[in-house]
Design a protein around this nucleic acid. Structure first.
Length: 128
DNA sequence: CAGATGACTCCCA
DNA sequence: CTGGGAGCCATCT
């Protein structure tokens, strides 16, 4: 039978560091995990969470724009219960809730890299 | 080893 | 804004 793949274990470890009320994107997780991991791999790891790590806060991983595309209703409900705000188009307000990565010590201990910078404009502030 | 799969992302019409 | 297509990569058959 399967055991948790090494890369997945790192993904779960990093996701477990995301505090309640914060979110990050698949691409950001992939960048921090490094080692040839990409957004799709993160998605695959989260898909297999039920088999490997049921305690990982999978709901805190959203797409790059803050959109929940897959298991929307359940995920949105969980995030809202943590205090995460959405705009009119069901996007997480990333400018407020984007996670800045694990602490420096934790990152160094597990060889995680820094999250990639975002060049997003504050257009998401335009609610309504 | 080769083909298929997917909870992504980017680019272009 | 919407939709289609390509690129990407670990994991499973």
């Amino acid at each position: 039978m399967d055991v948790t793949p090494p890369l997945y274990a790192r993904i779960y470890l990093l996701c477990g560091q995301i505090p309640s009320g914060m979110v990050t994107s698949y691409g950001d997780v992939a960048a921090m995990v490094g080692g040839g991991c990409d957004a799709r791999t993160v998605g695959e790891a989260l898909r297999a969470i039920g088999e490997h790590a049921p305690d990982v806060p999978w709901q805190r991983i959203v797409s790059q724009d803050g959109v929940i595309s897959t298991r929307g209703l359940e995920q949105r409900r969980l995030l809202e219960s943590e205090g995460v705000a959405f705009d009119r188009r069901a996007r997480v307000l990333m400018l407020y809730h984007r996670w800045g990565g694990p602490g420096a010590e934790f990152a160094a201990a597990h060889r995680f890299g820094p999250p990639p910078p975002h060049d997003d404009a504050p257009e998401q502030l335009e609610l309504f």
